[in-house]
């Protein structure tokens, strides 16, 4: 029982990072139609910036903010310079993002080599309750994820910006006729999603060492979760992220660790086949003219 609780707790902190990626993916893919497979590399860049800042003596909270800002800025530049030209042909955007994966990974390797990078844990306290060891850093990751995802959720579903955004997903032309600056919203969503990836990266390196190749597996999980939860469906992404994180945590804890990566792919394939709009319903991407 102790082991079970312990694994669920560990699973929850991994699930948090996966959820942050998945929320970014579900927003970008579900609301703008841009399929950015380099999202995992955005996360990795977030980790690298946090790592650079911490190794230069900057405190972790500030380093985390720097990481988020850097990735948000990168997202802005890439959307304006590249992705906006692919909006009409999502597959081209997807291929471009594959090129970006290669470029971002190897630029990082070029400057900071391919070795593992880690930072000292920003919080070292470990609580022990009834035989279950609770590392405070994991609790911090979980709480921050909850807060950020809740904020995003309120923004998308309650604010007038969120309503305008959902209107432009429903029908771009009509939304534009109603005076909604659709292109600017697309950029905004892309930057928001990128910032979430940057946050995920900063939190990930607080938990585990990372390499320039970390993004690759993480983005597949992010896409899996986003598709399982239903594109554009935030609560779906959170639920699917929790399921996947806990399943992975449990299977690692009970000795099937070599298969952990297979669950997300297998589950995603099954969901796409039988429930193409995800388990919890989604937009299946914006309607293209």
């Amino acid at each position: 029982m102790d082991i079970l609780l312990q694994q669920i707790l560990n699973g929850l902190s991994i699930a948090s990072v996966i959820t942050l990626i998945a929320v970014g993916v579900t927003l970008i893919f579900g609301l703008t139609g841009i399929i950015n497979f380099a999202h995992g590399e955005f996360l990795m860049v977030g980790s690298i910036v946090t790592w650079l800042a911490v190794s230069n003596g900057i405190a972790f909270p500030l380093a985390l903010i720097l990481g988020v800002l850097a990735v948000a800025l990168m997202g802005f530049v890439l959307e304006r310079a590249i992705f906006r030209f692919t909006l009409e042909r999502p597959t081209n955007g997807f291929i471009v993002s594959l090129g970006l994966i290669v470029v971002l990974q190897h630029v990082v390797i070029l400057f900071w080599n391919a070795n593992q990078k880690s930072i000292p844990r920003p919080l070292t306290t470990v609580w022990e309750i009834g035989g279950v060891r609770i590392a405070s850093v994991r609790v911090m990751v979980i709480l921050m994820t909850i807060a950020v995802v809740a904020m995003t959720y309120v923004m998308i579903t309650r604010s007038r910006y969120g309503r305008a955004l959902r209107a432009s997903v429903e029908d771009r032309d009509t939304a534009a006729l109603m005076g909604i600056p659709v292109r600017r919203y697309i950029t905004g969503v892309f930057v928001l999603g990128s910032a979430l990836a940057g946050l995920g990266g900063g939190l990930l390196i607080a938990l585990f060492p990372i390499t320039p190749f970390t993004g690759g597996t993480m983005v597949m999980k992010g896409f899996a979760v986003a598709l399982i939860g239903g594109l554009g469906n935030l609560s779906g992404a959170v639920a699917a992220g929790l399921i996947l994180g806990i399943v992975e945590g449990l299977s690692a804890g009970y000795g099937f660790s070599e298969w952990t990566d297979a669950y997300s792919f297998g589950l995603m394939i099954l969901v796409l086949l039988f429930r193409p709009h995800g388990l919890f319903g989604g937009t299946s991407g914006p309607k293209m003219a």
């Binding site: 590249i82 090129g99 970006l100 290669v102 470029v103 190897h106 070029l110």
Partner: peptide, 8 residues
Amino acid sequence: ILYGACLI
């Protein structure tokens, strides 16, 4: 890096 940039 060149491949990726070429692809884009």
